[in-house]
């Protein structure tokens, strides 16, 4: 380890920061876990009841993967958005920023807790909550939804996407002074609208001769039909471009957000 990094990152301090964050938030965590368990049991039971009433005596295989994905993303984004709220609290900023640890350790501890920590914790907790809910369903109704499989490919894919997307909300947490979750969400919407507008204007300029009023008739564009056929078959340049963009997004978003977030944390004045 390089000497400067060795000074900026000490595993002992990092572990102590993690312990501090866990100890500070364990009550909220217990309340959230109780609320989620109740919600899972209730919604799962209502789903099974609905099936029983409609005469179908079998649950669905997708209920828990879908429910888990929704809770993972919504809960994770909220948790990530609240990660640095202490800095903006009265006196909290002085307390946190003068805590003897480097900005790298402070950012990394929040990152680990809200990304991998939250994701793994959610999987373990949800597996137990789902097992409890399905046990109850089977006791009451005699059948239930499929048990939650944490190794389901859809679940694993969702976890991967979560790890990328949460980095944006963690950046929002350190960036915004108040209501970080709403502001980050609003910012993402604004970026999406901006990208759509740029794409629309670009299409208008490039394909201006194929526009009829505001409508673009792609069938008139030379080679479009072939391109469209290839895309449906999963080949061709559009598929390749899409694949490259996806890789860039998945591999690039999180590191860029981490870097900006860390720099922002270093520059915060209170």
């Amino acid at each position: 380890m390089a000497p400067s990094l060795n000074k900026a990152f000490k595993p002992r301090r990092f572990a102590q920061l993690l312990l501090r964050d866990l100890a500070g938030g364990y009550r909220s965590l217990l309340v959230a876990m109780a609320a989620v368990t109740g919600t899972v049991i209730l919604v799962s039971a209502l789903t099974v009841l609905g099936m029983q009433l409609s005469g179908r005596h079998a649950g669905t295989a997708n209920f828990h993967p879908n429910m888990f994905t929704n809770l993972l993303f919504l809960g994770g984004f909220i948790v990530s958005s609240l990660a640095f709220r202490e800095i903006r609290q009265n006196g909290g900023g002085v307390f946190y920023l003068t805590l003897p640890a480097s900005s790298l350790e402070k950012y990394a501890s929040k990152l680990l807790a809200t990304s991998v920590g939250y994701a793994l914790g959610s999987v373990v907790f949800y597996t137990a909550a789902a097992a409890a809910s399905e046990g109850i369903n089977r006791l009451i109704f005699g059948f239930g939804n499929s048990f939650f499989n944490p190794f389901d490919p859809n679940v694993l894919e969702a976890l991967g996407y979560y790890l990328v997307a949460q980095s944006v909300f963690l950046l929002g947490s350190v960036w915004w002074r108040k209501t970080a979750f709403l502001k980050t969400w609003g910012m993402l919407m604004a970026v999406a609208v901006g990208v759509l507008m740029v794409a629309g204007i670009t299409a208008r300029i490039v394909f201006h001769e194929y526009f009829h009023g505001c409508t673009l008739n792609l069938d008139d564009v030379p080679g479009w039909n072939e391109l469209s056929r290839q895309t449906v078959l999963g080949i061709g340049p559009l598929v390749e471009i899409g694949r490259i963009l996806k890789i860039v997004f998945l591999a690039g978003t999180a590191p860029v957000c981490w870097l900006i977030g860390w720099l922002r944390l270093r520059d915060i004045e209170v």
Binding site: K7, A8, K10, R13, A23, G24, R27, E86, Q89, N90, G91, G92, V94, F95, L97, T98, L99, P100, A101, S102, S103, E105, R266
Partner: peptide, 23 residues
């Protein structure tokens, strides 16, 4: 302004706005 851990280990600031965790 770099807030190095080596310095923060040797500084204790007790400000007027007190902040304590619920422990």
């Amino acid at each position: 302004q770099n807030r190095p851990a080596g310095l923060l280990e040797d500084i204790c600031l007790i400000s007027e706005d007190l902040h304590v965790p619920p422990v």
